[in-house]
Design a protein around this nucleic acid. Structure first.
Lengths: 213, 213
DNA sequence: ACGTTGGCCGATCTAGCGTTCGAATCAATG
DNA sequence: CATTGATTCGAACGCTAGATCGGCCAACGT
């Protein structure tokens, strides 16, 4: 499981990557704080102290997991977006990339969503930058989409972006790649769901009744 | 902060509720496993051992926080839904109730989203029931909405429900009640966003291009 | 042949954790 | 005033955590 990109070059990196994958699974399972380095030691077949040859603290381990995952999902996304012009198509790629990455890297995605706050100081700043970069990419595509669709007074871009990210980031909490609908169909559904609301012809403008019976 | 419902009756309950609120804030801040009973002791001005008069374990404390929050958001919802018939209006209530509760109980919402897995055994089962009940309420409303709107082959109900819950559950991660758009407007935006996509006249049916540049 | 280095380990340190227990306090009751 | 029950506390126990340290060993350049 967890076939990430950003391939390792040296033998050292290869082993580190293996540790990161195992650690991601453990963190996803028990939560960062509750999981112990000893768990990783046992699961990876490496002595407790031997692990510290590959990272210098538990927090750095968490950081490396998050950075690797974010760089991976971001680079895949940018790679696929290259050359595309139609904003609706771009949005489809965003959703597809996110769904597929989530389906293939459930553990990493769980760690990404749950354990951002566990990072402090410079670690947190660096992950924060990557998250913002991802969010901004989405916002820009939504901006293009709205311009091209001519819809005027739609939902503010930042709120639309947050709603989109919420939809996508929640997938890890319910989606089972083996038994549920396949990635392609889930992508279609979420795409239709979001685009339909975002490019709103505003036929039914705002709320209708006072909402109290 | 955190003005929950389900008011306390005895003096004992009042003090317990106070502890729950403080604990929720600490858990939200540092995460359940990382937060210590000693933190709560310090913050609440109660001795370490004195706390155990009000709960018998850290996990029970977490359970009580989650149960209280879920019962509160659920009862508020059912209360407001009573008498309503129009499904689109009902959905608006669902979103409004969720947004408002989130805005008023950020910490509890964070704990609810982050620390479900920290519960084990019967605690987890009981919270699981409440979560399912909430999810089912949403699904049923979406079912009515779809039937009444006549849209035929829309997005599957379970996926639509998950998308809706994702949108709403992500709010705690970005929304700042003090500085951001007010609750009413956020409700409008999310409602429009979701309904527009869910009641899809399927003008642009599925994906358009092969999605590869 | 030998020293150096990269990779790894067993043993251990220190800090902090959840929890318990017996005793102290205090208000209300008989 | 004595008794009781609810409430609070200080001190301690047993345990696990992250991290460190000195040393082992195979590989390799010289």
């Amino acid at each position: 499981m967890a076939e990430n990109a950003l391939s390792a070059h040296t033998e050292h990196e290869e082993k580190l990557v293996r540790l990161l994958d195992i650690a991601a699974e453990i963190f996803a399972d028990k939560g960062y704080h509750h999981a112990s380095i000893r768990d990783l030691s046992r699961e990876a077949g490496v002595s407790l102290s031997g692990l510290y040859y590959y990272f210098s603290s538990k927090e750095e381990l968490l950081f490396m997991i998050q950075e690797r995952s974010l760089r991976s999902i971001l680079s895949r996304l940018e790679e696929q977006l290259e050359g595309l012009t139609d904003p609706e198509n771009k949005l489809r790629i965003v959703i597809h990339n996110h769904v597929e990455f989530t389906a293939r890297n459930m553990s990493a995605m769980r760690v990404l969503n749950h354990e951002y706050d566990a990072l402090k100081g410079r670690f947190r700043v660096r992950i924060g930058h990557l998250r913002l970069q991802y969010s901004n990419t989405c916002t820009e595509i939504l901006r293009e989409l709205r311009r091209s669709s001519g819809a005027a007074d739609a939902v503010p871009l930042n709120i639309a972006t947050s709603a989109l990210l919420g939809m996508m980031n929640w997938i890890y909490a319910w989606y089972l790649p083996e038994t549920n609908v396949p990635v392609e169909r889930l992508t279609d559904h979420l795409h239709r769901l979001f685009v339909g609301g975002f490019i709103n012809r505003s036929e039914h403008a705002a709320a209708t009744e006072p909402a109290q019976a």
